[in-house]
Design a protein around this nucleic acid. Structure first.
Length: 520
RNA sequence: GGCCCCAUCGUCUAAUGGUCAGGACGCUGCCCUUUCAAGGCGGAAAUACGAGUUCGAUUCUCGUUGGGGCCGCCA
């Protein structure tokens, strides 16, 4: 064992991303990874990814994979690893042995029940719940005997009773009295080292210079420093980030309905939004700029501006940022991102062809041009908070036949006769427009100037375009809320637009069932 | 309970020993408008409390209160 373990001088910065694969990747994992990432990149440093999976009961490969996927998706890359602590038992064992040989750690044979009872008792008396030291003075022989008898034991670190002071990059100097910590357990046995020990060994072994982690680790820090001192290894720099809280101001957890990163991704949150949002949970540049790309974060971030108090996770603000980034996206990229939602909604199907593949309308079977999707997305863009919403608000583009109450076609005090007149007028205008001139601007330009005249002809207020346009809207989408009628007509194309107008006219003239069924 | 950390609108936060305490989300009013959004222009909304230092404190100090974290054979 390297007896001479030296101080790590002014080496290049190296940080760790140490997720524990005991659950799916969540906002906390993202924040931890993001701040480490930014800090490392700013300092030309390296990043080590280390799965802290020493809790074999709770750790699952599924979770580790989820975290790996999430980090990759977000673009939070690392330089070394992933390392898995469960594959490093031999390393821990060596250090464990060293501590035991040097009498800095010892076997403890106390039962959990016994310890728990003592803890309760101490806390009830207002004392710090520390280990009694019962097994601390067992001689080597006594311990050996008990071990030989097969007595169950754990390995406890002999914690020095002293004041530990350390500097925190976020909070400044923090002091602890380790007399209040007591001897703590560092391993279940020689093959199963525990967190406060593995962290110290790994951070040293991997050459970590900066430990950037959540505030909930502040009170672990003195323990880890004690272990470092016993092992004779250098102390890294520490930065403890404020915790992220739920609406009730307690540490964010599943109980708050905190959603996993994969779930956010599935719902159509953009990684830019997630990153911008998370970065501002506990940090801001001190200016009024709130929209930040990764590049800008790397430019402006500083640990000194990290907030000390915890921040409440506000999903409404996340939605705002997400819709902002959706509005920023270029239509082609957005359409590509939206396609999966159309497919899973059952509107679009992907088909194989000799040359590759193509898309078709899953409802009608007709072949689909990507331009069609792109246009839908272009027009829906301003109203999306998340990508998953695209399908539900675009359903009417894929249906063969629309079904709706005929009352819906009427605008305000219009009669059915007047509504029919409006449809006829639009039909008349539209049918004269060449398919080649069928653009949103063109349709609008042609129709709009005629609304005044139309209103006068049926004796309605001149400026209310709804008399002419509302029936068209309903004819095209069959519902109250939608994008503009000219936009819809543009997406639908001349033929379908005219057919839906004709359908609407049919509906008005009596038969309540959908007429198109008969002329398909 | 012990130890540690923290404290500006509801939320995320900016600023300063002297400001009308700024921005963003949300809420809300108006405009735009064929619906719903989006967009534009406004509005309400905060320095936890008490002392001290000071000409002056939200800012500095102390205390109180409040909130949080940790106190595991979890991480």
């Amino acid at each position: 064992m390297e007896k001479e373990i030296l101080k790590s001088g002014n080496k290049t910065v190296k940080v760790r991303m140490p997720p524990s694969p005991t659950g799916f990747m969540h906002i906390g994992t993202l924040r931890m990874a993001l701040f480490n990432y930014i800090f490392a990149k700013q300092n030309n440093g390296k990043i080590v990814l280390r799965m802290e999976d020493t809790d074999k009961e709770r750790s699952k490969k599924e979770y580790a994979d989820d975290i790996l996927d999430g980090l990759k998706w977000l673009g939070l890359d690392w330089d070394e690893g992933p390392f898995y602590q469960t594959q490093r038992t031999e390393i821990y064992k060596r250090y464990l042995q060293k501590l035991i040989e040097e009498n800095r750690a010892y076997h403890c044979f106390c039962s959990s029940e016994e310890l728990e009872a003592r803890r309760q008792y101490q806390m009830s008396r207002g004392e710090a719940p520390v280990y009694s030291g019962k097994c601390a003075n067992l001689s080597v022989r006594e311990a050996r005997d008990l071990l030989d008898q097969g007595k169950k034991s754990v390995i406890r670190f002999r914690a020095e009773n002293k004041k530990i002071k350390f500097n925190d990059l976020v909070r400044g100097e923090i002091e602890f009295d380790t007399g209040l910590t007591g001897d703590f357990v560092i391993a279940k046995d020689m093959d199963n080292a525990l967190y406060n020990f593995t962290v110290v060994v790994d951070d040293f072994d991997m050459g970590i210079t900066h430990v950037i982690r959540g505030e909930d680790h502040i009170s672990n820090t003195p323990k880890q420093i004690l272990v470092q001192e016993a092992l004779g290894i250098a102390r890294p720099e520490y930065a403890h980030l404020p915790i992220i809280m739920g609406a009730d101001r307690s540490k964010l957890s599943k109980r708050h309905g905190a959603v996993g990163i994969t779930e956010y991704r599935r719902q159509g949150y953009l990684k830019e939004a997630l990153i911008n949002f998370t970065a501002f949970l506990g940090w801001n540049p001190g200016t009024e700029k709130e929209i930040y790309s990764m590049e800008e974060l790397l430019r402006d971030f500083s640990m000194g501006k990290v907030q000390k108090g915890g921040a409440v996770f506000n999903p409404v603000r996340l939605d705002y940022l997400n819709s902002f980034y959706i509005k920023q996206s270029d239509p082609k990229t957005l359409a590509e991102m939206c396609l999966p939602y159309f497919i899973s909604a059952g509107y679009v199907a992907k088909e194989k062809s000799e040359t590759g593949f193509f898309y078709k309308n899953a409802k009608t079977g007709e072949r689909l041009d990507f331009e069609f999707i792109k246009k839908i997305v272009l027009y829906q863009q301003p109203r999306l908070k998340k990508l998953s919403e695209i399908a539900e608000v675009s359903n009417y583009f894929f249906e063969r036949v629309l079904s709706y109450e005929k009352e819906l076609l009427k605008w305000k005090d219009s009669s059915f006769a007047e509504t029919k007149l409006a449809l006829d007028k639009i039909e008349n205008i539209f049918s004269k427009i060449e398919a080649g001139d069928w653009t949103r601007q063109n349709l609008e330009k042609t129709v709009l100037p005629q609304s005044l005249e139309f209103n006068l002809s049926i004796g309605k207020p001149e400026k209310d375009r709804g008399y002419l346009l509302w029936p068209l809207r309903v004819a095209l989408c069959g519902q109250k809320m939608s994008i503009g009628p000219f936009e819809m007509a543009d997406v639908l194309g001349k033929e379908k637009t005219l057919r839906r107008i004709a359908d609407a006219a049919e509906i008005i003239s009596g038969s309540t069932c959908a007429p198109t069924l008969f002329n398909q």
